[in-house]
Every structure is written in structure tokens, then in C-alpha cells.
Design a protein around this nucleic acid. Sequence first.
DNA 1: ATATGTGGTGAGCATTCACTCACCTATTAA
DNA 2: TTAATAGGTGAGTGAATGCTCACCACATAT
Lengths: 214, 214
Amino acid sequence: MAQETNMQAAFENVMAASGNIPPKQKLVLAASLELFAEQGFANTTTKEIASRAGVAEGTVYKRYKTKDALLAAVLAPYVTEVVPAFVQDFAKQVVNQPYMTLHEMLTTVVTDRIAFIKGNRAVLQVLITEILVRSDLRKQLTPRVLPLLQKNLYAVLDRLKANAELVDWPNDRIAQFMIGTMITELARSIFTDEDLDQAGPVLLAFLEKGLAPK
Amino acid sequence: MAQETNMQAAFENVMAASGNIPPKQKLVLAASLELFAEQGFANTTTKEIASRAGVAEGTVYKRYKTKDALLAAVLAPYVTEVVPAFVQDFAKQVVNQPYMTLHEMLTTVVTDRIAFIKGNRAVLQVLITEILVRSDLRKQLTPRVLPLLQKNLYAVLDRLKANAELVDWPNDRIAQFMIGTMITELARSIFTDEDLDQAGPVLLAFLEKGLAPK
DNA sequence: ATATGTGGTGAGCATTCACTCACCTATTAA
DNA sequence: TTAATAGGTGAGTGAATGCTCACCACATAT
């Protein structure tokens, strides 16, 4: 499917952007992400990171001057590249197709996002945790994500509402339910460690019914 | 409304149980909760707690021997008292009323939970954050909450399904959507700092439509 | 050959922080 | 009056941890 291909392209962009990074530094990044997801950022020591990456502690600090910079380096590509690419990708698929139905749109969103969650459980878990803990990160992220939603998603929602295909609620509420429902699936996978393959149709049906006009 | 009264009773139980606690220790608990919610558990020092509570650092350790014990003391009453009382309270209202419709049940749940979220934003934020970070807490909590849901909520769901009032999905999926949708409202309030007063009807409508039979 | 730069190392430093302890005060018990 | 107990204090401590730095290895340029 086209959306999956494009999403993978977003990943590969990140990987390509980290092409200049020497191999041991990649190990450091990978170990950081793993440990942050397992134990949380604050409960992870740089010594642990070094040991899991199989490098000396000095190596951890060679490129990333502080532990915070390391967290930023792990999350930044997702915030500045993957998520925007993801949203704009969605836009390309959906915005320019004026006859797309609610069902078709939700199918796209759900399919896409489930694949995304599957491929990024660890990063997403770290990101959500740190968003809850660090109010500065919250304030940094909001102006980056909100306009993207407004310019891409909201236009589609307005059109569907005009066609009486979508319930007449404020766009932020509808986005809340769409994104929130997807995140319940992430939460489920964190709790149960179960795979997400079966989830698609149910999530889709729940959203489609819940967001149908009255 | 009856459910709100009962829920307040649950709060008061906690407060009453902490009746033996000397006043300065209550200040310590209150300051801990505030700071944990603002900065996260790991980013909060015992010196900060002491200073916000207006006591000496030794006082913090008089009753609670470790910082972890302090976190437990803050969360425990909610895990062992408030949440179970809350669920069983729900049971009393709903389980024994065989003619209750989906609409009535969801009204109860949504009304109740919104009030609960409003009154417990801080604790819930700390609880969710720590659940994401500490896998041990996750494993400790699951066997305490799951049976409660199964014995109380699931019975009602089964009956509604039998009456063809509720969509025929597994109970855990339905619970996921119910709880998840409520949590999206908590997330919204964390992001926007907006009050939750207006949310009730929309959440209710979304759930009711989403969970209606096909 | 020499110099320069990049990536890597790990012992060690400075600081922070959870936690302790000897002491104080006040209330209750004997 | 004395003893005992409980709550409170804050300077002090040891361990942990983020971070540095002098040094090494190797490649490329001069």
C-alpha cells in the first residue's frame, strides 16, 4: 500500500540523515532509546548506556555533550521529520481526493497509524512519557504539531462535515478522538505485549460509528 | 446525584484514613503530589519536597523511610481504596438494574469519571507516568484492577450485548474504548489547562454511537 | 616522515542527592 | 518530678552520577 511505502520512506530519511554518524554513535543512540523505553530517561545512567552500547562512557559524550542532548537526539528526528512527513503524507493521500468518504479516510488513518505504532513503540513510549513529565517539551511540541493538523487534517474534516458525512463537532474534538483511539491501542500493546495485527478493523469500526453524523 | 456523593465518600475515606497523620506529614504528602505531578517523581528532590512543605528534610523521612515509600504513600490510597471503591460504586448503580440501557450506563460512567478526573488530575497524571516508566508497577496494578473490571463492568456489558444494545466485541476491547476515551479527556486537560465542564455530552455521544450495535 | 583531525577510552572529578543521626521540644505516662 | 514517647530539625555523609580530560589509535593530508 502506498501509505506504508511513504511511511517507510520517512524512516529511511531519518536513517539516511544519520548516515554521517559513526557506527559506535549509532550504537549509543540505539542503546539510549532502548533503555529510555525500558526504564525511563531519568532512571537511566550514562554508564548503563555505554555498557549496553559496548563503548566507553567518554564515547557517549563525544558527540552529545549532555544527557539531555542525547534525549533530544533520539526524539528530535521523530518530532521534526517523521511526524511531519507522516502528516503531510496523509495529506497527499486524502486532501486532494474530494470524493473520499469518511470510511475511506479512516481506513487510511487507521492502517497508517497502526503500522506507525508497530514500528515505533519504543520512541512513542519515550515521547509520551517525557511529554507528561516535561512541560517545556509540551510547549515546544504543540506549535509544531498543531498547525500541521490544522492545515492537513482539519480541511478534510470540514469537507466531510459539509457533505454530512461526519458529525458536526469542533475539529479539535474529532482529532482528540481519532488520535486518542489510536493511542489506546499503543497503551494496550504496552500492557499486554500483544501484537497489533488484529486491531485494525475494530478501531476502524469504532471510530467510524462514533464519528458518523447523528 | 448519587454517584457523585458516593465518589466523594471514597475521597473522604482516604482523608479519614490519613486522620492519624500529623499535620506536617500531610503537608509533606501534599507537596510530594504537587511536585511529582509538576516535574515527575525522578526529577523531584527530597529537599524540594521539604522546602515546599515548609518542613525540615528530616521530617520527610520520619514517617516514610525512602523516597519510593513516599511515592507509594501518595499513590497507594488511590490504587487500593479510591479506584476499587469507584468501580464497586459503579457496580451498585449499574449491575443491579437489569433494565438499564446503554445510554443510561454510559451517562453514569461518563458523568462519574469526568468528576473523578476533575478531582484527581494530579494523582492520575503521576500514576499514568509511573505506570509507563515502571514495569513493576504495571505488573502490580494489573491483577488488582482487571478482576474488578471483570466482575463489575463485564457483567453489564454481557447483558447489554445479550439485549442487542451493545456492539458484539470482546469485553476488553469495549473497556479499552470506554476508559481510553475518558483518558483522552485527561490528556486534553493536561495540554490545554481548560476545564472539563463542557466535555460530558460529546464524550457520551461519541461512546454511545461508537459502541452501538451494527 | 610529519602533522592534523576524528573517533574512542576510562580513570577521575565535582556535585548532587537520598538518607542518617544526634539533638531539641512537647506531650503524655508513671 | 521524672521518664518515655513521638514529632521535628538540619548539618553531615557516603554513594552515585553526569561530565571532563589527558591520552591513544588510526586515517588522511602535507
